[in-house]
C-alpha cells in the first residue's frame, strides 16, 4: 500500500462521496487502497447514478416506475409500472427510499470491479 494509491483512493472518495452511503466509505477506502493499480482506469470511468437526479425522477415519474428502471432494478420497475406505481403507496414509499437504493446500487457496481 503505497502513498500513491492512498492519494488516489482519497481523491476518488472525495469527489464521489455523495454517490455512496456513509458506512460504505470506510469499507471502500480500505478496498481501494489495497487494490491493484491496473483497475483504476475502470473505476474512474465507471458512471455512477446521482441520487439527487434519481430523486427528482422519482418525484416526477415514480408512478411509472422510471426511477427503478434508471437504477437498474428493472424487475421492480416493471412491477411498479403495471400496478399504477404500486397503487400509489409504493410511489410514495420510494420517494424516501430511492436515494439509498441508488447508493446501494452504486456500491454494488463498484464492488463488482474491485
Amino acid at each position: 500500500m503505497d502513498a500513491n494509491s492512498n492519494l488516489k483512493a482519497d481523491m476518488y472518495l472525495m469527489t464521489n462521496a455523495r454517490f455512496f452511503l456513509g458506512h460504505h466509505i470506510t469499507f471502500l477506502r480500505e478496498k481501494l487502497t489495497g487494490m491493484h493499480d491496473s483497475k483504476w482506469p475502470q473505476i474512474f470511468s465507471s458512471e455512477l447514478k446521482d441520487p439527487s437526479n434519481i430523486q427528482i425522477v422519482s418525484l416526477l415519474a415514480g408512478g411509472f416506475g422510471i426511477d427503478r428502471f434508471m437504477i437498474g432494478d428493472t424487475g421492480l420497475g416493471v412491477a411498479k409500472l403495471l400496478t399504477c406505481g404500486g397503487a400509489g403507496i409504493w410511489t410514495i414509499v420510494d420517494w424516501f427510499l430511492i436515494q439509498d437504493a441508488t447508493k446501494q446500487k452504486n456500491m454494488e457496481k463498484i464492488q463488482s470491479m474491485i
Binding site: 415514480g62 408512478g63 411509472f64 409500472l81 403495471l82 400496478t83 399504477c84 406505481g85 397503487a87 400509489g88 403507496i89 410511489t91 410514495i92
Partner: peptide, 18 residues
C-alpha cells in the same frame, strides 16, 4: 382511484383500469 398520476394530472396512467 389510488393512482397518483391520475389524481395529480387528471390523465390516466398506462395501467389505470386494471
Amino acid at each position: 382511484s389510488p393512482c397518483i398520476v391520475k389524481n395529480v394530472t387528471g390523465i390516466a396512467c398506462p395501467s389505470c383500469g386494471s
